[in-house]
């Protein structure tokens, strides 16, 4: 280590904190100006902390399961009663579904509909949660190694969870539908009203840009509309739970605070999402635009 004079050391110590505070502010502004600037750094960090988080997620889940099984044991009788009734109801529905599926196949054949795309699933464990009031993301332990790509939908058996915003080699980040930055084109099942599901960091996202606001009622089912080509149509999202001054609010089908595993679905649609443009390429392109403008305006 280099020997420094005491005066110089003191001077360095006195200036470190202000310099770092300034640096943080500069980093915030840079990140705001260019969202993609820290992308590779984010990916590298995600990859390096993923093993630790994975190691912790196992025992943590075990504790959660233990608590859950005790709770389940206490409620077994009531739960069993409820399930018997539900099973009777569902058996009737199963018949209806089978009939409809058969009829649907026949009709698809008649109108020569384009067959639906093959779908592939990757199941991943949730290994981190964004603590704090301003960001709603989770980290999962799968990434490029499992052929995940930015924009793919994350779902559970109940419905839509969010979409992949950041994919590193062995970990990825899912932007939940409740995040302030999440916007999902949806349709209200019963009235075919198109809308955009906009997160606002609360538990229940809002519906905005409704094509027919009066047709929305509490209890309506909300599914993805497939408009925009990022998500396939028909993924269950939630139920309209209230209509307040800010518009209808949707209660997601998925209990987002209880996520243990999510499925990442590749519908072959993620190409619909514009890929981030690297900073340098963007500068070059801007330069090209300017050059073109110079040529156009003699």
């Amino acid at each position: 280590m280099i020997r420094l004079s005491p005066q110089l050391r003191t001077a360095i110590q006195r200036t470190t904190v202000p310099v770092l505070i300034l640096l943080s502010a500069v980093v915030i502004v840079l990140g705001k100006a260019d969202r993609m600037i820290f992308d590779s750094l984010r990916a590298a960090t995600a990859d390096s902390v993923a093993p630790t988080l994975e190691a912790l997620a196992g025992p943590l889940a075990a504790v959660g399961d233990a608590v859950g099984s005790v709770r389940g044991f206490i409620g077994t009788y009531a739960e069993n009663h409820r399930l018997v009734q539900e099973n009777q109801r569902l058996l009737a529905w199963q018949q209806t579904a089978l009939n409809l599926a058969a009829e649907n196949r026949k009709l698809r054949g008649l109108v020569k509909a384009v067959p639906e795309r093959a779908v592939s699933y990757v199941t991943a464990r949730v290994i981190a949660n964004s603590g704090g009031a301003y960001v709603r993301t989770v980290m999962i332990d799968a990434g490029i190694n499992q052929h995940l790509a930015r924009g793919q939908a994350a779902i559970t058996g109940e419905g839509l969870v969010g979409r992949l915003t950041q994919v590193a080699a062995r970990a990825s980040q899912v932007l939940l539908i409740t995040d302030l930055n999440s916007r999902i084109p949806v349709v209200i099942d019963s009235s075919h009203t198109n809308a955009v599901l906009a997160g606002d960091n609360s538990e229940r996202p809002r519906l905005i840009y409704l094509s027919n606001a009066d047709a929305v009622k509490v209890g309506d089912r909300v599914v993805t509309s497939g408009i925009g080509g990022v998500f396939p149509p028909g993924l269950p999202v939630g139920i309209v739970s209230a209509i307040d001054a800010g518009g209808p609010r949707v209660e997601p089908f998925v209990e987002l605070s209880q996520l243990g595993y999510v499925m990442i679905v590749d519908y072959g649609l993620s190409a619909g999402l514009p890929q981030p443009i690297p900073f340098t390429a963007r500068r070059a392109r801007r330069g090209a635009h300017r050059a073109a403008a110079d040529v156009a305006a003699p």
Binding site: I21, S24, V27, I28, G31, L41, A46, A128
Partner: peptide, 20 residues
């Protein structure tokens, strides 16, 4: 911030201000 996908620098700024 990098891990949770928050704007980078906010937590650093907070911790450093608290420190000083």
């Amino acid at each position: 911030d990098l891990v949770v996908g928050a704007p980078v620098g906010v937590t650093a700024l907070l911790l450093l201000l608290v420190y000083s």
